[in-house]
């Protein structure tokens, strides 16, 4: 008798834990032949709310971590993904990808993590400035993370797209709550498992599964969310998100790109999620006239 396979339960990822949705709701995912693949959590606004709380409480620690250390952690995520490559490929195929495109997507996603890992301790040098003010002050501007970012991840590019958005967000010290692809959610949960085992502190990335139409208003009107990124095409949702964002002056971004292209990875995406802080301090002016130095 052949062995009965152990099926995986796909749960959501909040604050470093894997709860089921508090709503108890789920949706069935099927393959092309309409055979059931998995039951996926249909997250509610309360799951989103809990995820924002987790993201907010993780923000202070994550944003003040040494940039070098954040880089190491992102690299560690890439390492862990490399080890689980086959699983990601298998899931993408289950959700309709060809083997070739699945492999391409997974390797590109891993490489993208490595790419942003390297930016962690460099973007401040590229985007920071020392400003030659006319008065006797030292003045410099540095990017600082915006805060908690709510992300509605790409629908089609379910793994590469997700990572292409999450990586620049957290590489820059932000924490996030991500709604993953509705039609292709499996890789996002497996990615959460990678995160959970790769030194990323709980709460830095929170991943929920579900339907954008149920959640996008909450993503955009939550008063403790600092920025929202929407990576889909629905223009009505875009408009409402932009309107809701005005409630607390959220930074709002619509990132719809071909994530397979190499120009879709760049530090300017990180810059979108940074605030520029300028600091002034007087420079004492003693011992200049006549002093030799």
């Amino acid at each position: 008798m052949s062995r009965i396979e152990v099926l995986k339960t796909y749960k959501i990822y909040i604050g470093g834990q894997f709860p089921r949705t508090e709503s108890g709701r789920y949706y069935s995912l099927t393959n092309k032949k309409n055979e059931p693949i998995a039951n996926v959590s249909l997250s509610s606004r309360k799951d989103f709310r809990n995820a924002v709380v987790a993201a907010r409480s993780a923000f202070g620690g994550w944003s003040s971590r040494a940039a070098f250390n954040r880089g190491q952690i992102l690299y560690r995520v890439a390492e862990m993904m490399e080890g689980r490559k086959d699983q990601f490929v298998k899931e993408l195929i289950l959700q309709g990808s060809t083997k070739k495109s699945a492999e391409a997507e997974v390797t590109m996603a891993i490489d993208r993590l490595v790419y942003y890992s390297g930016w962690c301790d460099k973007y401040m040098q590229v985007f920071g400035t020392v400003n030659p003010v006319a008065s006797s002050h030292f003045n410099f501007s540095v990017p600082e993370p915006t805060g908690v970012v709510a992300i509605i991840a790409p629908e089609e590019s379910s793994l590469l797209g997700l990572i292409s958005v999450v990586a620049p967000c957290i590489a820059g010290g932000n924490t996030c709550v991500v709604l993953s692809s509705n039609s292709k959610p499996l890789c996002s949960v497996t990615f959460a498992e990678v995160l959970a085992t790769s030194d990323v502190p709980g709460g830095v990335v929170n991943i929920i599964t579900g339907i954008s139409s149920e959640l996008y208003t909450h993503f955009s009107n939550h008063m403790d969310v600092n920025a929202v990124i929407y990576c889909r095409e629905n223009s009505e949702e875009k408009k409402i998100i932009a309107q809701n964002s005005s409630l607390n002056v959220k930074r709002t971004f619509f990132w719809t790109k071909d994530w397979l292209k190499s120009e879709s990875e760049n530090p300017y995406l990180m810059l979108d999620l940074q605030e520029i802080k300028t600091t002034w301090h007087p420079i004492e002016n003693i011992g200049i006239a006549g002093a030799k130095y």
Binding site: S135, S136, H137, P282, I283, E284, N285, I286
Partner: peptide, 14 residues
């Protein structure tokens, strides 16, 4: 304690 005399910021004074 004169070692604890108030500090002065020269630029502010100027």
């Amino acid at each position: 304690n004169f070692r604890m005399s108030p500090v002065v910021d020269q630029v502010g004074v100027e």
